[in-house]
Amino acid sequence: MNKRINWGRTLLIAIPFIWLLVLFLLPFMSVFKMSLSDMATARPPYVPVYDSETGLAGLWQLITELDFENYVWLTEDDLYWRSYLSSLKIALISTFFTLLIGFPIAYGMAKTPSQWRATLVMLIILPFWTSFLIRVYAWIGILKQEGLLNNFLLYLGVIDQPLIILNTDLAVYIGIVYSYLPFMVLPLYAALEKLDYTLLEAALDLGCSKIKTFWVIIVPLVMPGIYAGCFLVFIPALGEFVIPDLLGGSSTLMIGKTLWGEFFNNRDWPVSSAVAVILLLLLVVPIMLFQKMQERELKGQS
């Protein structure tokens, strides 16, 4: 290749690059900047940290007066701590249950005769295409006190008092597991489909028990699929807003819900930005791990 600048290639790289820089990276800077501002009853409701018109003097004043009072405020009010911890707990437990439910489905799909597999994969993907909001809405009708599940169980005579599930944490777990199940099943299926099943026969022939074969052969070999599925469920579940808001109760604390409330109900833009910055810090490690894995996967294919 010659040394001349290849304008076509430069343009091809520059257009999506600049778009993402301006509309993905730059906005994060403005969240960080906002988190250091003070709230004001104005439109928009904050006092800017730095006004570019005041020049260098203004910049110096900014550095000397820079304050983290919104962050101090977050540590003082235990609502935020409890929201972060409870989001972590809810995301971890639901990821575990999604794995528990998703694994047998993915395994069953991988063992289906090959002419059926494409159809099954499409059936897993199809609910993912239908609106998230609609699928969560469907569960309200099922779980509420005079809902379909209670009516059904009362009719069968299994219970004689309606169960209270809607507006509890249990409903949030059900909602997350249900909504994110395809994200878990697909990477697991991709890993299980590639598995060499003669290894299982060998292990069984050599006297390994079925349970031990599962732990010693299957699990280590499909570990990349397990990691991918868990990341894909855990990361978005941590910042989830719609599910805890519609299915959870007033006592269900999740950070996405707290941020939304701070922003839309209290109209406190600086504090909600500070909440977002801390959520982002929590997510940096899992997101970077996920990205490394994606790159490795892409390289492995080519």
Binding site: L23, P27, S30, I235, G239, E240, G256, F263, W269, S273
Partner: peptide, 12 residues
Amino acid sequence: PEVITGLSLLLL
């Protein structure tokens, strides 16, 4: 998380 993407774009 969508809440972060939404908030950051709004601020921009």
